[in-house]
Nucleic acid binder design. Sequence first.
DNA 1: TAGGGTTGGTGTATGAATGACACAAACCCA
DNA 2: TGGGTTTGTGTCATTCATACACCAACCCTA
Lengths: 209, 209
Amino acid sequence: MNDTNPSLAIHTAVALFTIRERLEFLCLDQGRLPMAVLEAGEGLEASARRALGVATGIEDVFLEQLYTFDGGRDGPQATVAYYALAPCEQLPISRPGVGWADPADAATRLHNDHRIIVQRACERLAGKLEYAPIAYQFLAERFTLGELQAVYEIIGRQALDKRNFRRRIQASAHLVETHDVRRNGCHRPARLYRLRDTQPMIARSPVRP
Amino acid sequence: MNDTNPSLAIHTAVALFTIRERLEFLCLDQGRLPMAVLEAGEGLEASARRALGVATGIEDVFLEQLYTFDGGRDGPQATVAYYALAPCEQLPISRPGVGWADPADAATRLHNDHRIIVQRACERLAGKLEYAPIAYQFLAERFTLGELQAVYEIIGRQALDKRNFRRRIQASAHLVETHDVRRNGCHRPARLYRLRDTQPMIARSPVRP
DNA sequence: TAGGGTTGGTGTATGAATGACACAAACCCA
DNA sequence: TGGGTTTGTGTCATTCATACACCAACCCTA
């Protein structure tokens, strides 16, 4: 029942992204992303979550399938890659062998096959930013428009006009204004917003690849 | 070396679409899409092409990975789904057990897991139509603007204004005008166009899922 | 060979969305 | 109390999207 033939296996791999000043991904010291071997009776997404849980202790994050790569050198093999997004506050990861890296450094930090995963994930992130509410996955439940704009600027790699950005966001109607503000420094406090709770959360196959 | 344990397998499945008046997909009489079991040393895309070749005899078509599904009842299993596009002229398929079906009838023609593949493929097709030059995959090398518009209307499921459509297409600069026309019926002949040959052909992971 | 039927091909005017741009408000700190 | 910093707001110009009508070229039939 338990087939352990190493030449035939389905792997899952996860690129977990967060934003702390810059966009960063979670990287194991061996130059790999968190991975798992798919077990009997286990779903692919469950396997990916398990991989992430083993490496980091967290499992409750946004997770979406990215692409499936063939690793077939010795036998029929496939690696189903996922990407995950989480706000950095939720990530008290301080385990040995686990760290963060800049996607631009992926080439030096990761083995080839995993480098491609990170690169593709960045591309999809930037593309999807424009039409899907994924930016919110990097933020806490309540956030300021300034924080949201920073996410868009970091992922989209370009500065945005504050007024035009706010107009665009308000028009998308994803947000609701709360009655609270956040005092964050020696300046005017910022109003807090949250995602409209009727927001259907999407974690499906891309419609627009 | 040759592992034939049926409880651990990687499958590929292909939904081949074409347009003949309507959008249609290729459907085997057993209510399945063309499939293959990934072999040792075989790439995923190669496996999908093989599946299509076995069922139809053709292999040289646009093919893109769609999504990977887990079929894990008895063991670790995965089905990597692809979708393929081809002009109907290239498809002289008249084999027993192979036919065409309307995606709207997929529910009655296909088993559940394959129905989802067709449905997702239709969604991606419609989404991708707007920003990627996939419509040309349904046309011969040279085609008229009327034919191209028909493809857009069928996949996008809405009628388009002729003049606005033409302006949009001309603006995209994907096309070059040829010096020939096609006489097609009892009306004015239509100018023939072809894809600009410097067009980088994309068959990659979706950037915008 | 003339006229009717059919599809191919073209321009303009209006409203909507986008992009550029500057200044006062609120807070903290010195 | 004044300087520094981020929040928050409106307008104008340009571009983009939409709606819309007629002649051209061909084939077929009478």
